[in-house]
C-alpha cells in the first residue's frame, strides 16, 4: 500500500491522519482522541446504534463509528452541543433499563457508568420505565442480568463473528427490544455458551457476569476509579501501541 503520505481530516481543529477505509472513530482512537461510544468496539464490525459517538461532520451530525474518514473533513467532537446530546442519550439509556449501580458488580468497570461520569450526568432526568426483566442465573458459571442491557449487540456480534456461535440475539421492537439467548428454554445454561467465548467478556455494562468473582476488586482500584474513561486507552488501541 502506498502510505507515503496519509490523508488527514480535522477533529476539533486537530489534524488527524487516517488510512483508506478507516472510520472517523477508528482514526480518532489511533490518534489518541476520545470520542464517547458504547456499541463501538475496535474488534467488531460497527453497529451504529447507540449514537453516543455522534459527531458533526461538515456541520451535520453523524455516527463516527460508521462514517468513513475522508480527506479534509471538518469534524466537531468535544463541543457543548454534542456533549449535551450525548448526555441526553445516556439519560435515555439509564431510564430505559434498571441501572442500580450500588448493587452492580460491574460498577467501576462499566463503560456506561464511566461515560456518564465523563459527561457529568448528575441524574437520569427522565421518568423511569422500570421494566420487568428477570435475571437468568441458570448457567453454572455465568449470570445474565438483563436489567442493565443497553442493546449495543456487542455480545451478539462477538458470539457470531468471533466465537462462531449464535448464543445471543435481539428480539422485540421499539422500547420492547430485548436480548435473548439461543435456547428453546430461553436459558443460558441450555446454549453452547462457554466462559472462554469472546462474548463472555465483551459486555460493556453489567449484563454478562462471571459468577462468584463479583466485587473482588476493591473500590478505588477498579478500571475507571484511577482515571476517567477519556484518559483510559481502549484495551485494543493500547495493545496496538
Amino acid at each position: 500500500m502506498n502510505q507515503d503520505k496519509l490523508d488527514t481530516f480535522t477533529l476539533d481543529g486537530q489534524t488527524i491522519p487516517f488510512s483508506a477505509g478507516q472510520t472517523i472513530i477508528q482514526a480518532a482512537i489511533a490518534a489518541g482522541v476520545y470520542i464517547p461510544h458504547l456499541c463501538f468496539h475496535p474488534e467488531f464490525k460497527p453497529h451504529g446504534s447507540c449514537k453516543l459517538c455522534t459527531v458533526k461532520v461538515n456541520g451535520r451530525q453523524t455516527a463516527s463509528c460508521t462514517a468513513l474518514a475522508l480527506a479534509n473533513l471538518v469534524v466537531e467532537n468535544n463541543t457543548a452541543e454534542l456533549n449535551n446530546e450525548r448526555l441526553t442519550l445516556l439519560q435515555m439509556l439509564f431510564v430505559e433499563g434498571n441501572h442500580f449501580c450500588p448493587s452492580c458488580e460491574k460498577s467501576g468497570d462499566c463503560q456506561l457508568q464511566a461515560t456518564a461520569y465523563e459527561l457529568k450526568m448528575m441524574s437520569p432526568h427522565f421518568d423511569h420505565f422500570f421494566p420487568d426483566r428477570p435475571v437468568d442465573a441458570t448457567h453454572p458459571e455465568y449470570l445474565l442480568d438483563f436489567n442493565r442491557c443497553i442493546l449495543c449487540s456487542l455480545c451478539v456480534r462477538a458470539s457470531r463473528d468471533a466465537d462462531g456461535k449464535a448464543v445471543f440475539a435481539l428480539s422485540g421492537r421499539g422500547i420492547k427490544s430485548h436480548l435473548i439467548v439461543n435456547a428453546e428454554s430461553g436459558n443460558l445454561v441450555d446454549t453452547d455458551f462457554s466462559s472462554t467465548d469472546k462474548a463472555a467478556h465483551i459486555c460493556p455494562v453489567g449484563v454478562i457476569l462471571k459468577k462468584r468473582v463479583g466485587f473482588a476488586v476493591p473500590i478505588g482500584q477498579r478500571r475507571f476509579d484511577a482515571q476517567p474513561i477519556s484518559a483510559t486507552p481502549h484495551p485494543i488501541a493500547k495493545g496496538d501501541a
Partner: peptide
C-alpha cells in the same frame, strides 16, 4: 411512531416512547 420504532438506535427507541408518555 413509538409503536413502529424499530428499536435499533437509542434516540428513537427511547425517545419516541418518552414523547408518547
Amino acid at each position: 411512531f413509538a409503536h413502529e420504532s424499530c428499536g435499533f438506535c437509542t434516540p428513537c427507541r427511547v425517545g419516541t416512547s418518552l414523547l408518547a408518555n
